[in-house]
């Protein structure tokens, strides 16, 4: 483009990159450096944050509804928001069973037997087509999550991995890989345990041994939140 004024070196170059002021050649060579230079990436991030303040000042303008419709269409059909656990008649029976269970819990509480060792809340993780259904129950006293497969197994050569996104967290935390053919008991680390009740659990399919990166790498089959039992 021009003779660059190199007085400010990478600092200015990073700003120009963020502003899209570099010409094609400069941009390419900057990006090549960026891929291997962490300090340079940090400079770019800093300029992005600094200049984004100019964007914050731009007045809000509500886009027409059709954009939202198009956006939601573009990312696929909406997931059914959690199939009602035991719908219809079974729900009634389930209700009676829960009532019965509550009576038992009450009794055992009175007797002081088995208190706290019952699951206190539960989430049903079902994939959109219902081909995979898992039920996660939590025993708060022992910080345990028990995941029971109801339907479906992982694809051949893959495993299911359970994740938690605590309320307000910015990234999912792995709770562990699930057994492919039976219930899995997972002891949740103490520092994570308080966030389970209000968090979201998710199950993804991953290579054997679980995600190598610490975030889900395969498809996320289902997400759910817990409901008190």
């Amino acid at each position: 483009m021009t003779d660059p004024d190199d007085t400010f070196g990478d600092e200015a170059l990073a700003a120009e990159y963020v502003l899209h002021l570099l010409d094609a050649d400069e941009r390419r060579s900057f990006e090549a450096r960026l891929s291997r230079d962490q300090d340079l990436r940090a400079l770019v991030h800093r300029w992005e944050a600094l200049l984004a303040q100019l964007g914050e000042d731009v007045p809000d303008i509500a886009p027409p509804q059709r954009v939202k419709t198009a956006v939601l269409d573009a990312v696929g059909p909406p997931r059914k928001t959690g199939r009602r656990f035991l719908p219809g008649w079974p729900a009634l029976l389930g209700g009676l069973a829960v009532a019965g269970l509550a009576a038992i819990v009450l009794l055992t509480n009175v007797l002081g037997v088995g208190r706290d060792l019952e699951p206190a809340f539960r989430a049903e993780l079902s994939s959109e087509d219902q081909s995979v259904v898992l039920v996660a129950s939590v025993i708060p006293a022992t910080h345990e999550i028990i995941v029971e497969p109801v339907a479906g197994t992982p694809p051949a050569g893959r495993v299911f991995e359970l994740w938690l996104i605590a309320e307000g967290a910015t990234a999912p935390v792995s709770l562990g890989v699930l057994e492919s053919d039976g219930p899995t008991r997972i002891r949740v680390p103490d520092e994570i345990a308080p966030g389970v009740r209000t968090g979201t659990v998710a199950v993804s399919d991953e290579p054997p041994g679980g995600s190598p990166t610490g975030v889900p790498t395969g498809s996320v089959l289902a997400t759910a939140t817990f409901e008190d039992l």
Partner: peptide
């Protein structure tokens, strides 16, 4: 907003909305 983004990462359509 951060919580919504975290859930969007897990393909949560309602969080995306």
């Amino acid at each position: 907003i951060e919580a919504m983004i975290a859930r969007v990462a897990l393909r949560d359509h309602s969080a995306f909305s």
